[in-house]
Structures are given as C-alpha cells and as structure tokens.
C-alpha cells in the first residue's frame, strides 16, 4: 500500500503539486488522470524519490519513504517497477539485454531461467522475436512495450507506469491495459498509472484520481465517473460530442 500525505512540490516559485493526499491499495489499478502539465509525471517521480517532496510524505506500508536513507530506499526500489513516459530504455543494449538487466544485476538466476523469464515477459507484451533488436531499430510503441516488460520482469510489488499506452494503437493499447490489470490482480501489485486514455480509464480504473493544476480535484471509481457531478472533470473526460452522447445513454 502506498499513501500520500499532504505532499507538495515546487520548482523555484512554481508550485507543481499542492497538498495531495491519496491511498493506493494493493491488487488495484489506480489511475491518475489530468490535462497535460497538471503534474502527473512529477507526482509519480516524487513517489519513487526521483524528486524530493517539499513537504508531506510518501508512505510505503506506513514507512515514510521521504525520510529514508539511501539504503532503505534501495530496498524499496528493488520492489518497484517503473515505466517512464519517455521509455528510458538503455540505448546501448538490445531489447533482450534491456529486459534481462535487472535480473543480471539483482538475482542469482541461471542463464536459462533468466532467458525464460525475459521471453515470458516479452511474450506478454506481444513482442516475441524482437529480442536482438536495438531500441533505435524498433517503433515507439514497441519501445513502450519493452519498457513495460522491463518494469515487470522482476515481479515488482509496486508498479508505476507513466502513460503506458500513449502512442499505441487501440488494439495493442487494450492488450497492455489488460496485462497491467491482470498482473496487478494476479500478484497483488500496487499499481499506479498515469494516463490520458479514456479507454483505460473505463476498463481498468479501480481507483481514479483526477488532477487539476497540481491539486487533487476528484477521486472515485470508474462507475462514479459516469455520474460524477464535477464540471471540470466532465469536460476533461467527456471531451468529445460522441462521448457526451455515450454517457447520456449510459446514465439512462
């Protein structure tokens, strides 16, 4: 379980996050939605310690991560899998080497076990046969999927995905959403996903946090979302006429 207690973050005099509190439970996929620039990525980076919060704290199982020393943080980080918005693949390594890297670094598995694990993960993201390619030789959507494979290869307890399906076609996008949801439930992972994708919101959102200009503006489940009475949220989610119509029918 991850808990945010009143966290705030500014860069210089620019307040990016203001007083955000939320709880993310294991076995549930928590989504953070919000317009571009609302602070989703910054929030995620604060949660894993790439940015230090200015006030408040991030609690992993009631332990204050923000106050931990480097070794205590490392212990938690070994249980974290993260997909970056820009993928952050190691560009000097092949797809396979990228995914196998955490296993090489932190486990004593045999070569065969590692290979099997990597192939299993690549298969789950629909990337069979791309093992020997370099990141520069694959498409943006494929990179995203390699990033996901790398994030899940160590069976993380906490999974962070920054826009896992931006740049993917709707079909692959659904495959990835399903994958995230499945492993979350299967291994009881605490999953935190930033997204713009309304399909994902409706499909896999067990808990949804809507951010607006660095503040928590709304939270609830995807069911609540359909009937939510919040003008900003409505405009954000049901932005097109088509969706507005669809909603009307749903509510009826």
């Amino acid at each position: 379980m991850i808990e945010l207690r009143n966290i705030a973050k500014s860069f210089g005099d620019k307040e990016v996050l203001r007083n955000i509190s939320a709880t993310f439970e294991p076995g549930k996929t928590s989504l953070v939605i919000g317009t571009s620039g609302s602070g989703k990525t910054v929030l995620m980076k604060c949660m894993v310690g790439l940015f230090e919060v200015d006030s408040g704290g991030v609690f992993y199982n009631n332990e204050n991560f923000s106050k931990m020393n480097i070794n205590e943080r490392k212990a938690i980080r070994k249980e974290i899998g993260m997909l970056f918005q820009g993928n952050a693949l190691f560009d000097s390594m092949t797809v396979e080497e990228n995914v196998i890297f955490p296993l090489n670094m932190f486990t004593d598995m045999s070569e065969k076990e590692k290979k099997d694990r990597v192939n299993f993960c690549l298969e789950r993201v629909n990337l069979k046969g791309a093992n020997k390619l370099y990141p520069s030789e694959i498409s943006g959507g494929m990179m995203k999927r390699v990033g996901i494979a790398r994030a899940i290869v160590q069976n993380p307890k906490y999974l962070f995905c920054d826009e896992p399906n931006s740049g993917l076609d709707p079909q692959t996008s659904i495959v990835i959403d399903k994958l995230i949801q499945e492993i979350t439930q299967e291994y009881n992972i605490t999953t935190f996903v930033n997204t713009h994708d309304m399909n994902s919101v409706m499909q896999i959102g067990d808990y949804i946090l809507y951010m607006f200009e660095g503040e928590k503006h709304w939270e609830g489940t995807s069911k609540d979302l359909m009937t939510a009475k919040n003008e900003r949220l409505e405009n954000f989610i049901f932005s097109s006429e088509f969706l507005k119509e669809a909603r009307k029918h749903y509510v009826k």
Binding site: K45, V48, L50, K74, A75, R77, K78, I80, M82, F84, G86, A88, L89, F90, D91, F101, P102, M105, F106
Partner: peptide
C-alpha cells in the same frame, strides 16, 4: 537527459 540514469536509480542500482 533520456532518463536512463533515473531508470537505473529506480531499479536500485548505485
């Protein structure tokens, strides 16, 4: 700048 160092950091690598 491509966040590869951050990615290593998150894995728990020094």
């Amino acid at each position: 700048i491509t966040e590869q160092i951050d990615a290593l950091e998150i894995m728990g690598v020094n």
